[in-house]
Design a binder for these strands. Structure first.
Length: 680
DNA sequence: GCAAGGTC
């Protein structure tokens, strides 16, 4: 068995991969790898006192409580393997650090330089080591250069303000999440006697509410008719559709009057022709969100699936760290070496040779603006994959091709924009031709509309009108969510992290709040009920503003303007008041609502259409609102068409796919004479 | 058992 050096400094990394990087950076020779409990650590003899470099595996400690019920504010840190059976794998890391801490003369927290990394290292040193002999390594990338500098400039003591901010984040999320979750479960228990698992939290609840409000508006949506002039002209034996440049018509009659004038004409006269060269820059290298979006678009993978596949590739050392927000590829990753390795793979040989020829040896990535303090964008390491599953292969291929494309040339399109006139009305025709394939050679996953050849058109030319008519379209309700667009929404409002977003979305499904129907997300009755109760009694938790507020307070802690105790106390005060009030006055009522949504409690007076409770006219709240909407929009349709019978309007609304679900159901109910409703 | 945040 290996004997540790008599004296050593213990360096604690956040994960084994980082520990290896640190060992390599600090060692002049190949660092010596050892194992304990099956977990690797490294010994580096770089100066008189050797470094022993070991690693955590993310958080090794978690908050827990021994108390039941709520409000609950007594919590403490325990080893995560002891409370979470999914985290058994952290135990050997925990034991190794416990052992190595015993004999170390000093401790360096070399976890990622952010609040979570500060907490991970702090808790280990506090538990097993000695905070009085602790140092902090501060680096923003795992490159040798950065790491060496960080170790030259070690600061004495830990970054306690970062630690405090991190501890505060854990505590705030815990007291809000655990308490409100328990409040919901308590409500169901006292109203129905049943024990079920419900949850709420700073990130999941605003996400649920976002889906609920989108879904509600969608279900209530009634399109508005829009009238347009549609003209086809012939150019060189082909027909093209002109785009009418006037404002679309809100009344059918107006459109028909314009059409009458146009029908008198034989030609569309070309007023102006503009040729342009359009360039589409190469896409930036992948961050996790972009990879998830593309894998969903191309292969229909859910964000969590993509993330898990990427993690497997990472663990096989085929790609770099996937949980990154960065769209940057620093020079230090060694572009050439990766290209040369990729060239060894027959699958990519032609691509790489092409790229090297095309770039004439100057490899410059087209980076995006997003950054990540801890990692670069996702890139292939160049290592040759051996046995990949079909899905792993798809993700790997996507990453390689995106990596290659980012070093390639712009896509160049030649376009022609023609402005035309038919009597006094103006039209436009725009066509594109692909001139240079550029990066699409490597990454062909972009849909562009283009024609094979651009027609020859000159100013003053008269193009024969083949057909002219009024085209009726209907406004659409644009928003709807699938797992990927929901994740993008979370990204856009900045809640959750790269590692957690996909997981939190899956949680909303496993709680039974959401379900997938035809590829789209739908809210279940339970989802509606939970969302409504949270809005009513725990409003703070339903908005992304809570995250903004936390961020501000954590920042104040980092900069010494506020103390953790005070921040936590403020939340405790707010929470204990609303929780006690809920428990005393609202829990039973809320529990009945939840119970009905779960069908534990029968609904006495059922809506004629759904399982909901009747509010008025034999309809539940949602279908009643749909009926009111039908009345309101009828006026708009009468204005648009000049006149339209009520029943015909209902038939049309019912037949249109863009109409909301509740609206269509009510329209059908009236048509079938199940619901009696006439506009006044 | 409940959060959100790390990572094998």
């Amino acid at each position: 068995m290996f004997m540790l050096p008599r004296k050593y400094v213990l360096v604690i990394a956040e994960k084994p991969k980082a520990a290896l990087k640190i060992a390599q950076a600090l060692s002049k020779v190949k660092p010596v790898k050892h194992r304990m409990y099956g977990v690797p650590y490294w010994v580096v003899y770089h100066s008189e006192i050797p470094y022993v470099i070991a690693s955590a595996a993310g958080h090794l400690f978690a908050l827990t409580t021994s108390e039941h019920g709520f409000p609950v504010f007594k919590y403490y840190w325990v080893p995560v393997w002891a409370v979470d059976k999914e985290a058994k794998y952290t135990r050997p890391y925990y034991l190794v650090l416990k052992n190595l801490c015993k004999y170390a003369i000093a401790f360096v927290n070399a976890c990622d330089y952010d609040i979570e990394g500060s907490v991970i290292g702090y808790l280990i040193i506090k538990e097993f080591g000695d905070l009085g002999r602790a140092y902090r390594a501060k680096f923003s990338a795992l490159t040798s250069q950065d790491l060496r500098q960080a170790f030259r400039r070690l600061s004495k003591g830990l970054d306690m303000s970062m630690v405090e901010a991190g501890l505060c984040r854990h505590e705030l999320d815990w007291i809000w999440g655990i308490n409100v979750s328990r409040a919901l479960m308590f409500a169901v228990k006292i109203a129905t006697g049943k024990r079920i698992i419900l949850s709420a939290g700073r990130v999941q609840s605003p996400t649920l509410v976002e889906v609920v409000s989108t879904e509600k508006q969608r279900n209530l949506f009634i399109p508005t008719p829009i009238f347009n002039i549609n003209v086809n002209v012939a150019i060189g034996g082909r027909t093209y559709t002109l785009e009418y440049l006037g404002k679309p018509f809100t009344r059918k009659k107006e459109a028909e009057e314009v059409l009458k004038e146009i029908k008198k004409e034989k030609w569309a006269i070309v007023e102006n022709v503009r040729y342009e060269v359009e360039k589409i820059k190469p896409p930036p290298p992948f961050n996790l969100g972009d990879l998830q979006a593309e894998a969903s678009k191309i292969y229909g993978f859910s964000p969590l699936k993509t993330q898990e596949l990427a993690e497997q590739l990472y663990l096989d050392a085929l790609i770099s760290y996937p949980r990154t927000n960065s769209q940057k590829l620093p020079l230090t990753i060694g572009y050439e070496t990766i290209m040369l390795k990729l060239k060894e793979n027959p699958e990519y040989r032609n691509y790489v040779e092409n790229l090297l020829k095309e770039s004439r040896g100057v490899l410059k990535p087209h980076e995006g603006v997003k950054t990540d303090p801890a990692h670069p964008a996702i890139y292939p390491t160049g290592l040759r994959p051996r046995k990949l599953s079909v899905d792993q292969q798809k993700i790997y291929d996507l990453i390689v091709k995106r990596f290659l494309a980012t070093f390639s040339a712009d896509v160049i399109l030649h376009s022609i924009t023609v402005h035309l006139r038919i009597t006094r009305f103006k039209f436009k025709l725009k066509l594109r031709r692909l001139y240079l394939k550029g990066w699409l050679k490597y990454y062909p996953f972009l849909n562009i509309n283009y024609v094979e050849n651009l027609p020859f058109i000159g100013k003053g030319q008269k193009l024969p009108i083949v057909r002219a008519r009024v085209l009726t379209t209907y406004s659409r309700y644009g928003k709807s969510y699938d797992k990927t667009s929901l994740l993008k929404w979370m990204e856009s409002v900045n809640i959750g992290t790269e590692s957690t977003r996909a997981r939190i979305i899956e949680n909303l499904f496993s709680r039974g709040y959401l379900k997938i129907v035809g590829g789209k997300i739908e809210v279940t009755p339970l989802g509606y009920a939970v969302s409504e109760i949270l809005e009513k009694y725990f409003k703070d938790l339903t908005s992304v503003e809570l995250t903004r507020k936390f961020e501000k307070m954590l920042n104040d802690i980092r900069e010494g303007r506020m103390k953790r105790e005070n921040v936590v106390l403020e939340s405790k005060n707010i929470l204990s008041k609303i929780l006690l009030e809920f428990k005393a006055k609202a829990a039973e009522k809320a529990g009945i609502e939840l119970g009905k949504s779960l069908k534990y409690i029968p609904v006495e007076n059922k809506c004629i259409i759904c399982e909901g409770e009747v509010v008025n006219m034999k309809l539940c709240k949602n279908h009643l609102e749909a009926l009111e909407n039908l009345f309101k929009q009828y006026k708009v349709w009468v204005y648009a068409y000049g006149s339209i019978p009520w029943r015909e309007y209902l038939k049309k609304v019912f037949s249109l796919n863009v109409s909301g679900k509740w609206v269509r159901e009510v329209a059908k109910g009236i048509l079938d004479k199940v619901i009696e409703a006439n506009p006044q």
